[in-house]
């Protein structure tokens, strides 16, 4: 237990020094944030999920993401609110809390030039959500458009973990 706490403190310190958000409140995702997220997670598998409150399929699947996080609390999951109808931070935070995702690494789009933010993630992405990117340790990406089946995400995480060993 103690070891875990120490690891958490170290990890938090590391993230703090990198200027990145870990658990807790939504952090603003602006120009360049995508690059810094990739950098912070470089060399490790990463799951990135884009969502928004105005998107009914997103709201429906969010509790499943909460369950994934509950089953794998240390899973490298980054949730990014990229709603095309911008959400209020308070509303988004409340919903993350309700979905069991307050402890994930949470971001929210904070630049009205959303095309530029999206271009940094994927030049072809025109904003459709939900969208999930499974990024392997070597940077290889798998894109899931629409709701992501929890089993697919969990299986992918297991495969990546096995590959890391």
């Amino acid at each position: 237990m103690r070891r875990f706490r120490l690891a958490a403190v170290l990890l938090a310190a590391l993230c703090f020094s990198a200027g990145l958000a870990m658990a807790g409140p939504l952090e603003p995702f602006g120009r360049g944030t995508w690059k810094s997220i990739l950098k912070a997670h470089a060399g490790r598998p990463l799951v990135v999920h884009f969502w928004g409150l105005s998107c009914a399929p997103c709201r429906k699947e969010m509790p499943r993401w909460g369950e994934i996080l509950a089953r794998k609390p240390n899973a490298p999951i980054v949730m990014i609110n990229a709603d095309l109808v911008p959400n209020l931070v308070e509303d988004a935070e409340k919903f993350l809390e309700q979905s069991g995702l307050a402890g994930a690494e949470n971001w929210i789009f904070e630049d009205r030039f959303v095309e530029r933010l999206r271009y940094e993630v994927d030049p072809q992405w025109q904003g459709e959500i939900p969208l999930t990117l499974l990024i392997a340790a070597d940077g290889r990406r798998t894109t899931i458009e629409g709701a992501a089946p929890a089993s697919a995400v969990l299986d992918w995480l297991d495969v990546q973990a096995a590959a890391e060993k």
């Binding site: 928004g52 105005s54 998107c55 009914a56 997103c58 459709e128 959500i129 939900p130 458009e145 629409g146």
Partner: peptide
């Protein structure tokens, strides 16, 4: 075939 919001 998609369950998402294209807004397009």
């Amino acid at each position: 075939a998609i369950e998402s919001c294209p807004h397009h």
